[in-house]
Nucleic acid binder design. Structure first.
Length: 943
RNA sequence: GCCCCCGUAGCCCAAUCGGUAGAGGCAGGCUCCUUAAAAGAGUCACAGUACGGGUUCGAAUCCCGUCGGGGGCACCA
C-alpha cells in the first residue's frame, strides 16, 4: 500500500462549501442567537414600569410550565413543549402582536437538597450550576425568550413576594355570605362591634390568645393539629395530592403514615365550589377538567341525624349524623356504621361489647392505608347500641367498621345494603337484613341495585311515602321532610381536603411567621421581608427508616439556633420570638410565577396592576363575557393536572378577591403536550443495553450478536436510551431538530423518538436552501421570474393553510405544506426560486426553523430581522378555482370524474354528471332514483 | 370495579361539516448523476381505516358490541 487515503477524505472534499450541513447550520445558528440577544429582539414591552415601551393593544402571553433545573440535563422529550410555545410565539410576533414569552426556574425542591446532602455543597450552588447548564441547553435551540424576564424561585427578590402572598392569605378569611375572601381585620371588626357573635364569650372579654385562636379558625392559612401524611423516608410531611392511592410518597415511593402533627394548612376547601364551577369558563382539555372535578369531588346529598340510645357509660340519647347521597333510600337503612376513629364510638358502646370494640380499633389502627386498601373483605364489630331510623322508627344496630372512613362526610353512614354494594357485602357477612327501596328491572341479576327506578317499600303509617317516585323526586321529597322534622337537611359534600402547606425541608421558602412565648403565630411585617434562608451546616432533614411510623419530624432550620431565636419590635417594644422552622412546599413558587413574569423587576409590588391588567386581565371583547383572564396559552404535561394547576388557581382567586389582580383564573387556555417516548432493550439477563447500538433484523433485535428484547416507554439514563438535544443540534443543527420535533405529529400526541427520521427534516432544509443559494459559490440563486398561475395558486393555498395550522398548533401539517411548496419549486424552477415564491416561503418557515430563515431573509437583501414580520398574507383571488373536478359516485362508489366551471349550478353539475359516458352506460337508459349533488365536493347517482 | 382517550401503509402521521382514503417524513424498489460508493435529483409501489354489526345516497368520521393500547379514579357513603 503506497498511500493511505481514507475514503472519507474524498467525500468531505466533495461536499460543496455552501451546502446546508450541520456545521453551516451551527454557524448560522450561533450568529443569529447572538444577534437576537444583542438586539433584544424578543423583548416585550410593558405598559408601565422598568420594562415600559410602546405596546400594541394586541398582545399574547405564552407560557411553558415552570421547569425544575434538574442536574441530569435535558433529553429530546423535554424541549417538545418549549419549541411548541416558541413556534406559536414567533408566529404571532410576526403577525404584529406583542408577545410575552420567557422561561424561569422552579428551583427550590428535594433533588437539589438531596444532591447537596450527598456532595456537601450548598443547594444554591448546585441549583445555580444546574440552571446554567439548563440555559446553555435551551439557548442552543433558539427559543425567543425575553431574557430580562427570567426569574428563579430561589432568588430572595422573588420569594420575598411568595412570602408576601402567604401573608395576604394568612391575613384573610372566607366570607361565605359574600362568596369571597376578605381581610381578617374586617372579621375582627365584626367581632369587636358585635355584628358577628363570638362563640363562648364576648370579644371584649377574650384574651389576646383566645382572640387569635378564634381568628385562626377563619384564616385561609392556619395552623392545625391534625392527622397528616408523615413520610419518614423523606423526613417530611406531604400533601394529600403527593401521596399515591396505595399510601406511598409520589416522590421516592416511601411508605406514608397518618400522624397527628401541628402544621400549616391552606383553606383551599373554602373555594371548592368556585374551583369546580369556574372550570367551565376555561379553555382547558376536558381530561384535566375531569381530573380536577374528580379530585374536588363534589357530591350532593343530605345529612341525616339518627337518635341512638346510649348503651354504655352515658345512658342519654345522642344523635349520630351521617352523610348520604341517597336520602331516597332511607327506608332501606337496616344498620349504621361508625368509622373506628369516630368520637361517638366511646359514648355509645355497651359494656358487653367494649372489649371487642377496643380490640377491633387497635387492630385497625395498626393497619396502614395500604392494608386497608388491599383487603376489601368487610370486617367490623357490633357496638351494642341501636339507632332509630327517623322515617319509620325502626330500631337498627350500630356497628364499627373500617370500610367507613373518618376523613369523608361525617365518618358515619346509614347502611342501605339494597342499594349499595359495600353495604350489601357487609350485610351478607354479618347476616343483616336487606330491603330494596328502588325497584330494579325485571331482568336485574346483580346484588345491590344502584340504578334508577321507582321507589318501593318506602312508606310509613302516618303518611310519608316515596313509593312510585323516581330517584330524583324521592330525594327532593325526603329532604323536605327531614328538614321539616329537624332530622336532617340537604347538603353538599367534597372530597377535597385543606392543603397541607408545611415541609420539614431546608431548600424552600421560609415562612414569614414568628411565635411569641404563648406559641401564637404572628405575621412578620411586610417591611421585614424577605425572610432569607440562613446558612446551615447540615441541609438534611432527619430521615428515618422508611417504616418507622413513630419517628418525629425534625426540620433542618430548627437546628439553626441563631436564626430561630430573634429579637423583634413588633409594636410593643423589642421582644424575643421564635421563627417558624418549616418551609413552604415546592408548589408555592409556581402558584404565581406568571404574575412575576409580567413584572420581574418591580420592587414596590409583586406586580404592577397596570401591567397585570394588560397581560393577564380578562378581555371580554375577544374571549366572551365570562372570560376569566389569565395566560393566553399555557403548555405543559398532564402530570400537573391536580397539583400545581389546582393550587395556582386557588392563589389566583384569593389574590383576586383581595383586589390584587384583575382576573380570577391564572391560565385561560391550557394545552397538554404529548410525551416523546423511546424504545429500550434488555438482554437475556434483563440488563439494559445501549439502544443506539441495537440492530434490527427481520423484526428481531440484536445487540453485539445477541438477541435482545424491546420495550417501549420513557427515556432515561438507566434505560440506556437517552438522546439529547445537544447531540441532535450537533449532528443536524437546531433548526432541523426543531422542525423534526414539530413534524413528528400533533403536539398533544405521544410518540416514539426515531433518530433515523431526523434526516428527512434536514433534507428539506437543504433543498430549500439549495433553491435559494448556490451550494458551491454561496451566491443567491433567486430569480425575478414571474411564476405561472399554478405556482401562485399553490403559494397562496399554502399561505392560507399554514396560517391556519400555526394558529391551531398543527405544526406537523404546516411543515408538510411547506415541503410540498418547496418540492414544487424544486421541480418547476430548476434555475432557482423566483423571489415571489422564495420570500414568503422563508417567512413561513421562520417560526419552525428561525435561524436558517433569518439567514436566507438577509441573503435576500433584507436588513431587518423577520422576527416581527411580515408574515405573508394569502391573496383570495388565487384561492378560488375556475373549474372544479367532481368525482361521480354511482351508489356510493366512484365511477367517473367530470370537470365543470366553478360557478356551475347544482343542476348544471347534475346534468354534466349524467351526461358522462361511464355513468350513462351504467344508467343504461333508465332514470336514476336519486341524484345528490354536494356543491364543490361530489355527485352521487343512486340507481 | 368505575370513568376518559386512542387504534389509517413496514414505521411516524394527513384527511377542517359524514362527501374522491394520502399531504409530508422514514424505510423500500427503479432511473439519472458518479470510476465507485455516499450524498443529491427524479420516479414508483404499498393500506382500504383493529374486528363485527347498525344508521345513511354516501362512514376513518355518527351509534352499538368485541378485541388491543394508553390514562385517571378507586371502600368517598
Amino acid at each position: 500500500m503506497e498511500r493511505d487515503i481514507p475514503m472519507s477524505t474524498d467525500a468531505a472534499d466533495a461536499t460543496p462549501a455552501y451546502r446546508y450541513t450541520a456545521e453551516l447550520a451551527g454557524e448560522i445558528e450561533r450568529r443569529w442567537q447572538q444577534h437576537w440577544e444583542e438586539q433584544g429582539t424578543f423583548h416585550a414591552p410593558n405598559p408601565v414600569g422598568p420594562l415600559k415601551g410602546d405596546v400594541p393593544a394586541d398582545k399574547l402571553f405564552v407560557q411553558d410550565m415552570f421547569p425544575y433545573p434538574s442536574g441530569a440535563g435535558l433529553h429530546v422529550g423535554h424541549p417538545l413543549g418549549f419549541i411548541g410555545t416558541d413556534v406559536f410565539a414567533r408566529y404571532h410576533r410576526m403577525n404584529g402582536r406583542n408577545v410575552l414569552h420567557t422561561m424561569g426556574f422552579d428551583a427550590f425542591g428535594l433533588p437539589a437538597e438531596q444532591y447537596a446532602v450527598q456532595t456537601g455543597q450548598h443547594p444554591r450552588k448546585t441549583t445555580e450550576d444546574n440552571i446554567q447548564t439548563y440555559l446553555r441547553q435551551i439557548r442552543r435551540l433558539g427559543l425567543g425568550h425575553d431574557e430580562r424576564r427570567r426569574i428563579s424561585t430561589i432568588d430572595p427578590g422573588y420569594y420575598k413576594w411568595t412570602q408576601w402572598i402567604f401573608l395576604q392569605i394568612f391575613n384573610s378569611w372566607y366570607d361565605t355570605a359574600a362568596g369571597k375572601a376578605r381581610p381578617i381585620a374586617e372579621l375582627e371588626a365584626e367581632f369587636a362591634s358585635g355584628e358577628r357573635s363570638t362563640p363562648d364569650k364576648p370579644w371584649a372579654e377574650m384574651t389576646g390568645v383566645e382572640r387569635q385562636r378564634l381568628l385562626g379558625e377563619y384564616r385561609l392559612a392556619y395552623l392545625s393539629e391534625a392527622p397528616v401524611n408523615w413520610c419518614p423516608g423523606l423526613g417530611t410531611v406531604l400533601a394529600n395530592e403527593e401521596v399515591t392511592a396505595d399510601g406511598r410518597s409520589e416522590r421516592g415511593n416511601f411508605p406514608v403514615f397518618r400522624r397527628s402533627l401541628r402544621q400549616w394548612m391552606m383553606r383551599i376547601t373554602a373555594y371548592s365550589d368556585r374551583l369546580i364551577d369556574d372550570l367551565e369558563r376555561l379553555d382547558w382539555p376536558e381530561k384535566v377538567k375531569a381530573m380536577q372535578r374528580n379530585w374536588i369531588g363534589r357530591s350532593h346529598g343530605a345529612r341525616v341525624r339518627f337518635a341512638v340510645e346510649g348503651a354504655g357509660a352515658s345512658p342519654e340519647t345522642v344523635d349520630i349524623e351521617v352523610f348520604t347521597t341517597r336520602p331516597d333510600t332511607l327506608f332501606g337503612a337496616t344498620y349504621m356504621v361508625l368509622a373506628p376513629e369516630h368520637p361517638l364510638v366511646d359514648v355509645i358502646t355497651s359494656t358487653e361489647q367494649a372489649e371487642a370494640v377496643a380490640a377491633y380499633r387497635r387492630e385497625v389502627s395498626r393497619k396502614t392505608d395500604l392494608d386497608r386498601q388491599e383487603n376489601k373483605e368487610k370486617t367490623g364489630v357490633f357496638t351494642g347500641a341501636y339507632a332509630t331510623n327517623p322515617v319509620n322508627g325502626s330500631r337498627i344496630p350500630v356497628y364499627v367498621a373500617d370500610y367507613v372512613l373518618m376523613g369523608y362526610g361525617t365518618g358515619a353512614i346509614m347502611a342501605v345494603p339494597g342499594q349499595d354494594q359495600r353495604d350489601w357485602d357487609f350485610a351478607k357477612a354479618f347476616d343483616l337484613p336487606i330491603i330494596r327501596t328502588v325497584q330494579p328491572p325485571a331482568d336485574f341479576e346483580g346484588e345491590a341495585f344502584t340504578g334508577v327506578g321507582p321507589a318501593v317499600n318506602s312508606s310509613q303509617k302516618n303518611g310519608l311515602s316515596l313509593d312510585g317516585l323516581d330517584v330524583a323526586e324521592a330525594k327532593k321529597k325526603i329532604i323536605a321532610w327531614l328538614e321539616e322534622q329537624g332530622r336532617g337537611e340537604g347538603t353538599v359534600q367534597f372530597k377535597l381536603r385543606d392543603w397541607l402547606f408545611s415541609r420539614q425541608r431546608y431548600w424552600g421558602e421560609p415562612f414569614p411567621i414568628v411565635y411569641d412565648e404563648d406559641g401564637a403565630p404572628i405575621a412578620v411585617p411586610e417591611s421585614m421581608l424577605p425572610i432569607e434562608l440562613p446558612d446551615v451546616d447540615d441541609y438534611s432533614p432527619r430521615t428515618f427508616e422508611p417504616d418507622d411510623a413513630n419517628s418525629e419530624p425534625s426540620p433542618p432550620l430548627s437546628r439553626a439556633d441563631d436564626w430561630v431565636t430573634v429579637e423583634l419590635d413588633l409594636g410593643d417594644g423589642p421582644r424575643k420570638y421564635r421563627r417558624e422552622t418549616n418551609t413552604m412546599p415546592n408548589w408555592a413558587g409556581s402558584c404565581w410565577y406568571q404574575l412575576r413574569y409580567v413584572d420581574p423587576t418591580e420592587s414596590e409590588r409583586f406586580v404592577n396592576p397596570e401591567n397585570e391588567r394588560y397581560w393577564l386581565g380578562p378581555r371580554t371583547t375577544e374571549h366572551g363575557p365570562s372570560d376569566p383572564g389569565g395566560v393566553d396559552l399555557y403548555i405543559g404535561g398532564v402530570e400537573h393536572a391536580v397539583l400545581h394547576l389546582l393550587y395556582a388557581r386557588f392563589w389566583q382567586k384569593v389574590l383576586f378577591d383581595l383586589g390584587h389582580v384583575s382576573g380570577d383564573e391564572p391560565y385561560r387556555r391550557l394545552f397538554n403536550q404529548g410525551y416523546i417516548e423511546a424504545y429500550a432493550f434488555r438482554d437475556a439477563r434483563g440488563v439494559y443495553v445501549p439502544a443506539e447500538e441495537v440492530e434490527e433484523r427481520d423484526g428481531k433485535y440484536f445487540f453485539a450478536g445477541e438477541e435482545v428484547r424491546r420495550e417501549y416507554g420513557k427515556m432515561g439514563k438507566s434505560l440506556k436510551n437517552v438522546v439529547t438535544p445537544d447531540d441532535m443540534c450537533e449532528k443536524y443543527g437546531a433548526d432541523t431538530f426543531r422542525l423534526y420535533e414539530m413534524s413528528m405529529g400533533p403536539m398533544d400526541v405521544s410518540r416514539p423518538w426515531a433518530t433515523k427520521d431526523v434526516v428527512g427534516a434536514q433534507r428539506f432544509l437543504q433543498r430549500l436552501w439549495r433553491n435559494l443559494v448556490d451550494e458551491t459559490t454561496g451566491e443567491l440563486r433567486v430569480t425575478d421570474e414571474d411564476p405561472d398561475e399554478e405556482a401562485l395558486r399553490l403559494l397562496h393555498k399554502t399561505i392560507a393553510g399554514v396560517h391556519d395550522d400555526y394558529a391551531n398548533l398543527r405544526y406537523n401539517t404546516a411543515g408538510a405544506k411547506l415541503i410540498e411548496l418547496n418540492n414544487h419549486v424544486t421541480k418547476h424552477f430548476p434555475g432557482g426560486a423566483p423571489r415571489v415564491l422564495a420570500e414568503p416561503m422563508v417567512l413561513m418557515l421562520a417560526p419552525l426553523s428561525p435561524h436558517v430563515a433569518e439567514e436566507l431573509w438577509s441573503k435576500l437583501g433584507r436588513t431587518e430581522s423577520l422576527a416581527h414580520g411580515p408574515f405573508p398574507k394569502a391573496d383570495e383571488k388565487y384561492l378560488v378555482e375556475d373549474t372544479v373536478q367532481y368525482p361521480i359516485q354511482v351508489n356510493g362508489k366512484v365511477k367517473a370524474r367530470v370537470v365543470v366551471s366553478a360557478s356551475a349550478s347544482a343542476d348544471e353539475v347534475k346534468a354534466a354528471a349524467l351526461a358522462d359516458e361511464k355513468v350513462a352506460e351504467l344508467l343504461n337508459g333508465g332514470e336514476p332514483r336519486k341524484v345528490i349533488v354536494v356543491p364543490g365536493r361530489l355527485v352521487n347517482v343512486v340507481l
